[in-house]
Amino acid sequence: MISKYLEAGSTYAGDIDSLILLILAVVGFWGLLAEVVFFGLIFKFAEKEGVKALYVTGEDPKEKRWVSIPHYLTLIFDVMIIIGALRVWAEVKLDMPQADETVRVTAQQWAWTFTHPGPDGKLDTEDDIRTVDELHVEVGKTYHFELASRDVLHSFSVPIFRLKQDIVPGRIIKGWFKPVITGTYDIQCTEICGIGHGLMPAKIVISEAGKHQAWVKANAGVAAVAAPVSGSTGGMP
């Protein structure tokens, strides 16, 4: 359903979409049924001249079934949903597959710095590539990412991956993704981080191996400098 609007760009995006679809089917059906019964009763039992309402306490087990059967059904469907939810959660957030490469994401008020390994494929070497507001990755490779913040909370969200993770100053938070499509898409900060929160868009550029490697070679050792922490200047970018 979501991929109609937003490409499913990672290995797990499809699984999150399916989970959402499962929930939609289950709660959509029951929610709709409840609404239909509800409106039906309002019309069926509209006030009529000379007809007295029934006297039902609802304490009798036979009457209680009206509530307890839907109640048990809710439980069963809850269990279905929870199994789906936990499986997808484990896939995205708990089980980290072996990485081909690691990138570092540093957020600050109000810019992103991305540190990519250079041609040697390793971080913390001379040829690391630092960019501002642009993350370059290769389709089909498994990436680990390390999130850090220089100031306040931010959140690293890549909607086409269905990925989101808050960034907490003082910690490095790790995660992973594996892109399956190419193109240029939004990266968004999704945790309010001050007056520039709406002004820190970034891009993810996903390319074929050849194109990506060419970019890596051409930029080896580039160290872009992110804007200073704007909060301390008190101004707007």
Binding site: V27, I82, A85, L86, W89
Partner: peptide, 12 residues
């Protein structure tokens, strides 16, 4: 609320 309570879907 169920969509949001399902951890896997809440990521999105």
């Amino acid at each position: 609320g169920i969509f949001l309570g399902a951890s896997g879907a809440d990521i999105y």
